[in-house]
Amino acid sequence: MAIESSSWAIRSAWLLAKDLKSEFRTRYALNAILMFALTTLAVVSFSLGASSLSPKMAASLFWLVIFFSSMSGLAQVFVKEEESRTVNLLRLVATPGIVLCGKFLYNLALLLILEIVVVPVFAVLVNVPILNLWLFLSVLLVGSLGLASATTIIAAIISRARVKGALFAVLSFPILLPLLIAAIDGTYLSLQGEGFSACWSDLRLLISYAVVMFTASLLLFDFVWSE
């Protein structure tokens, strides 16, 4: 039987659909990242009491919550395939490029679900008004693209390590530092009510980071994925 050609985008979408279906049936990662985020925000809210955070502190706290919550869930994207011993099956049927794209889309979807829950809870509990909502959402979206790109390739690397433990957070931190600095600054400007022109350098850095990280991942992934 001849293999019919369908685009890599459609095949990646099938991998995304499979991972989402598995996730909603097993709650392997989603529960972990949501519980981490909500618990952290609740603790901060209790400790703040009636006082409120400055916009700079609030922006830092917001990205810290996103960073550490994603660390607890996004690392599982390849570890789960290794632990359930389905990784060889995936290697047999899919090309490395399709696997990377599918897993990237899945991590991005998890991040967006996390953010849909965290943003309103953050706004209510931390009591910081978002004065430029569109800028806030733009920084969040572009930051998420970079975060998903970086965490996907790092997750692939650590899934091959014998001792995984805290390796994901340790390896991610230096790689994600430029993204976090730009994202915190952009979020701070949006909380201050600044316009897109004031934030353009941060947005440009975040877009460049996402493009560079995804391209580098595509080039490197075959070496990480193949035994």
Partner: peptide, 8 residues
């Protein structure tokens, strides 16, 4: 899933 990801 396995047939579609292989393009079948």
């Amino acid at each position: 899933f396995l047939s579609r990801i292989r393009g079948l």
